[in-house]
Amino acid sequence: MDGGALAQFLPLILIFAIMYFLLIRPQQKKLKTHQSMVEALRRGDQVVTQGGIIGKVAKVKEDGEIEVEIAEGVKIRVIKSTIAQVLNKTEPAA
């Protein structure tokens, strides 16, 4: 491989490196923080789903679901990964 061929591939390599640092790496970091937030969900946390429903976690199940109370006596089952934000965390028991 001579210098001319390397000069042709250099712009492609630079474009890939820029794409990695501007797009792929931040997305991976955001995904990791979302996964850790979802894993830390506890009973009593106030959450917002991706659909915009605000409620309080009533029960955390092992099969990737949580039960969210959206009104007194009204509970819905939600898949953990659809939680967009945790508004209020409950304090861990002493």
Score class of each variant (00 low, 15 high):
Gly64Ala: 08
Ser36Lys: 15
Lys89Thr: 13
Arg77Ala: 06
Phe21Pro: 00
Ala58Phe: 06
Met1Leu: 11
Gly3Leu: 06
Val48Pro: 05
Ala17Leu: 09
Gly44Val: 07
Glu62Trp: 04
Ser36Asn: 13
Lys75Phe: 11
Glu39Gly: 03
Val48Ala: 05
Lys75Ile: 10
Gln8Phe: 01
Phe21Asp: 01
Val48Phe: 05
Gln46Arg: 12
Asp2Val: 02
Ala58Trp: 09
Gly64Phe: 03
Glu67Lys: 06
Gly4Asp: 11
Glu62Met: 08
Gln50Phe: 04
Ile53Gly: 02
Lys61Ile: 00
Asp45Gln: 06
Arg25Leu: 12
Ile70Asp: 11
Val38His: 06
Pro11Arg: 04
Ile24Thr: 05
Met37Tyr: 10
Glu91Trp: 12
Phe16His: 01
Phe9Arg: 00
Gln28His: 10
Glu39Phe: 08
Leu10Glu: 02
Ile53Glu: 04
Ile76Phe: 09
Leu31Gly: 07
Val86Leu: 14
Val68Ser: 03
Lys30Met: 13
Lys75Ala: 02
Glu65Phe: 00
Ala58Val: 02
Gly3Thr: 05
Ile53Val: 10
Ser81Glu: 14
Ala17Ile: 07
Ala5Asp: 01
Ile53Trp: 03
Lys32Glu: 15
Ala84Glu: 14
Met1Gly: 13
Met19Lys: 01
Pro92Ile: 15
Lys59Gly: 00
Ile24Met: 09
Thr82Gly: 09
Pro26Trp: 12
Ile83Val: 14
Leu22Tyr: 07
Pro92Met: 14
Gln28Tyr: 10
Ile18Leu: 12
Glu91Phe: 14
Pro92Ala: 15
Ile15Ala: 09
Ile54Leu: 07
Val38Tyr: 10
Ala40Asn: 05
Ile15Glu: 05
Lys75Arg: 13
Val68Asp: 03
Ser81Met: 08
Gly51Cys: 00
Gly3Glu: 10
Phe9Tyr: 04
Met37Leu: 14
Ala84His: 14
Asp45Tyr: 15
Val48His: 03
Ala7Met: 01
Arg43Pro: 04
Gln28Asn: 14
Arg25Ile: 07
Arg43Ser: 13
Val74Lys: 12
Gly55His: 09
Ala58Asn: 05
Ile18Cys: 05
Val57Lys: 10
Thr90Pro: 15
Asp2Arg: 00
Ala40Ile: 03
Phe21Val: 06
Lys75Leu: 12
Val57Ala: 02
Ile70Asn: 03
Ile76Met: 10
Arg43Asn: 12
Val68Cys: 01
Lys56Gln: 04
Met1Val: 04
Val47Asn: 11
Met37Asn: 06
Glu62Ile: 01
Asp63Arg: 04
Pro11Met: 00
Lys29Asn: 08
Ala5Lys: 03
Arg77Leu: 11
